[in-house]
Amino acid sequence: MAELTYRDAVIRGIAQEMARDEDVVFLGEDVAKAGGVFKATVGLYEQFGSLRVRDTPISEQAILGAAMGAAMTGLKPIAEIMFSDFFAVCFDYIANEFPKSRYMTNGQTKCPLVVRTGNGAGSRFGAQHSQSVENWCMMIPGLKVVAPSSPIDVIGLLAASVRDPDPVIFLEHKSLYATKGEVPDGEILDKLGTAKILRPGKDATIVALALMVPRALAAAEKLAKEEGIDCEVIDVRSLVPLDTQTILASVAKTHRCFSVEENPRLCGWGAEIMSIIADEAFYDLDGPLVRITTPHCPLPAADILEDAILPTVDRIADRVKRTLQA
């Protein structure tokens, strides 16, 4: 057991899979010799060499296209897109190519690859380097979408993603890279499509993802301490496949559900979960389904503004409290 940062967990996760399988190769901008702009790939080039860890030009279409061609013909590529906002310049692969090739070819074409990317706000980078784009990916049939919140989940879910036969979008949160957590020694392999109950509770369910997970946990502690409200906090972890059973079972117990989403409000991932609850667990509910999200607004650069636009611990706690007391 060792304490590891989320950033070092990325390195360890990639290294674990590259050491296990020679077909795993890694490409992206500044990822090899420079070790990545977030220092989340330091040492991989030295450990695995220039044939397996490759720097690319600033050509996001070439990166994702090459990953796909390699995946179709026998490799298991991990491609890095530095900031998830850049998905917009290579979205053809994410929306049209990876996810549709198997279906269109009646099952002939395979596409086992992972796209890692730095997602989310908190770095004061402004509207084009801070977005949470999980909902861009979640809506596309054929993709899997994963967003870990802790170092141990980074390793286990990254390993599961690399070993998965489908294209996986792996969203690392930039504001979590420096966070730490306990990680056991040896190989770590998790399972896609499994949510985790991080804090059991009886009064309300809070579902959260990535950076919103530690905030939801802190809000739950605050509510318990200050209001005597006992919240169950679920880390969704995997949007596709989605572990609805864990969420539905929790709602059956607490009769309340809140989502905490960093993505802007419209069509955020929580809307899908809430619609499932409304459809399948309506009579379990004692109150409205409430989404706590970033508003329908681009992200500002200034720290004071960026801090105010995302769901905060106080905002989450306040909204849960007001709803339960209404």
Binding site: I63, G65, M68, G69, A70, D92, E97
Partner: peptide
Amino acid sequence: AHLPIACGAAWRAQYK
């Protein structure tokens, strides 16, 4: 779309 994809298939041939 397929020009980068062909690059990837060629990369596999080169690597293997």
